[in-house]
């Protein structure tokens, strides 16, 4: 069997998504045997080594270096996979895109140092290149990362869950935090597949996996306003993992 050639790379992000793969400890030996991990800088294999069968890319694009890296990976790989919320939506790094200017943010972080990092507003991969597949999550779920690798090995892409967080949350017989506790839970509009990790422990869904495919954003907004939350507070919460929402969207 051919060993698919993989590149695993990170742009502007915390490396948590790549770490999720490294945390699949039980499967790592098998992964190393079945795949040719040509380039995985975080795990210290060489950079370069094109062409690839798949490039799995974590992080948002926010520097000229990110952009060059992304173009290089896109041009040298048959498939490009966005790994995690930052790569798909911009993520946490992008939460202030619509609030502050780049200059203000750079000044706040780096102060009056002589050198500043050249950067721009963090943006998802799709703003610059075509993306063949996405695995959402901050970080993604291990089993979804493994499902991707198993599918790649078989020359296909995995059918991941497409329902919202509520579906798994109800199936786990959790107390509904939105209905029963009237908390600011984003479950109905957020992509499931996490097995309702947070609500199962009594913490509201903060939306780390981004919108479900047909998110009824307008209705969720109405529900939260009815429960007494302010528009600003709701928008602030919703933009934590994805900076821009269409608040009038019903489908």
């Amino acid at each position: 069997m051919n060993r698919p050639r993989l590149a695993i790379a990170g742009l502007t992000a915390c490396s948590g998504c790549q770490l999720t793969l490294l945390n699949c400890e039980e499967e790592l030996a098998e992964v190393a045997a079945r795949f040719d991990l040509v380039s995985f800088p975080m795990a210290e294999s060489v950079e370069g080594g094109a062409p690839f069968d798949a490039a799995i890319v974590e992080g948002a694009v926010s520097t000229p270096g990110d952009l060059a890296n992304l173009f290089r990976l896109r041009n040298s790989s048959r498939l490009l996979v966005a790994l995690g919320t930052c790569a798909i939506f911009g993520g946490v790094a992008a939460m202030n895109n619509g609030v502050s200017t780049r200059e203000e943010l750079v000044a706040a972080v780096y102060g009056d140092g002589e050198k500043t990092v050249e950067s721009f507003a963090p943006a998802p991969l799709t703003n610059f290149v075509s993306v063949d597949f996405s695995i959402t999550g901050c970080p993604p779920e291990k089993q979804e990362v493994m499902a991707l690798l198993c599918a790649l090995l078989n020359g296909t892409l995995p059918p991941l869950a497409t329902y919202p967080v509520c579906t798994e949350c109800r199936s786990r017989e959790n107390l509904c935090l939105l209905l029963e506790r009237k908390e600011l839970c984003l479950g109905p509009i957020i992509q499931g597949g996490c097995n309702a990790r947070c609500p199962a422990t009594g913490i509201v869904c903060e939306g780390c996996r981004g919108p479900v495919r047909e998110a009824n954003v307008a209705q969720e907004l109405e529900l939260l306003l009815e429960r007494g939350f302010g528009r600003k507070e709701i928008e602030r919460r919703m933009s934590r993992f994805k900076p821009e929402w269409d608040y009038g969207q019903r489908r």
């Binding site: 599918a151 059918p159 509520c166 479950g187 109905p188």
Partner: peptide, 22 residues
Amino acid sequence: VSCGACSVCCPTCYCFDLREYP
């Protein structure tokens, strides 16, 4: 909001999805 609660909690809703994972 297509949250799925109505069918997840319905005692007679049995529609299912089939998926294959290698």
